[in-house]
Design a protein around this nucleic acid. Structure first.
Length: 156
DNA sequence: GCCAACGTTGGC
DNA sequence: GCCAACGTTGGC
């Protein structure tokens, strides 16, 4: 029984971790997510092989820059246990982890960046509540429908 | 660098 | 359970 592939969008600040970094390392544990909604999507929704739109945030031209895929099931984010880590969470324990992540594997870079500015022009087609075009949304991991995936990549 | 919007925390 | 204060996100 093979489940249908799902699609996601994941944001990263290129100064911290860019699509080029992912290309170089191949696979990366997506650590540092400290938002419950984003965590739940990774922990409860993602499956190996799912498609990921890689988005650069907080940069000169924010937008979708590449495609990756989910490369592991969710498991605890080790950085929550490390006192030295920027992502340390004193309330998390090995027995009761609070934060989970998945491994993300590089697939390809887009031929060009699809800028947020351009994505906004398709806000109606993407639908109300799509986090990239919804006002004020800061969600860094969220699901993308097959139709949204197709539309966004058609802009490449 | 600014700052609006948002999520989380903790006092009550 | 409310909500003010605070810290963070992320476009501009």
């Amino acid at each position: 029984m093979t489940a249908r592939k799902r699609y996601w969008l994941m944001k990263s600040e290129p100064d911290a971790f860019s699509i080029d970094d992912l290309e170089r390392v191949g696979t990366e544990p997506w650590n540092g997510v400290r938002n419950y909604q984003a965590r739940n999507f990774m922990r409860d929704g993602m499956r190996v092989g799912d498609g990921v739109l890689f988005y650069h945030s907080n940069t000169k031209v924010p937008g979708i820059v590449g495609i990756a895929r989910v490369a592991s099931h969710a498991y605890p984010d080790d950085t929550q246990f490390e006192p030295r880590s920027h992502y340390h969470d004193p309330k998390a324990t090995r027995e009761q982890p609070r934060w989970y992540l998945v491994d993300v594997a590089f697939e390809r870079k887009l031929a060009r960046t699809i800028p947020l500015e351009e994505i906004r022009q398709h806000a109606d087609a993407l639908g109300e509540g799509f986090p990239l075009t919804a006002r004020g949304s800061r969600l860094s991991v969220f699901p993308v429908t097959a139709a949204q995936w197709k539309l966004l990549l058609s802009l490449e």
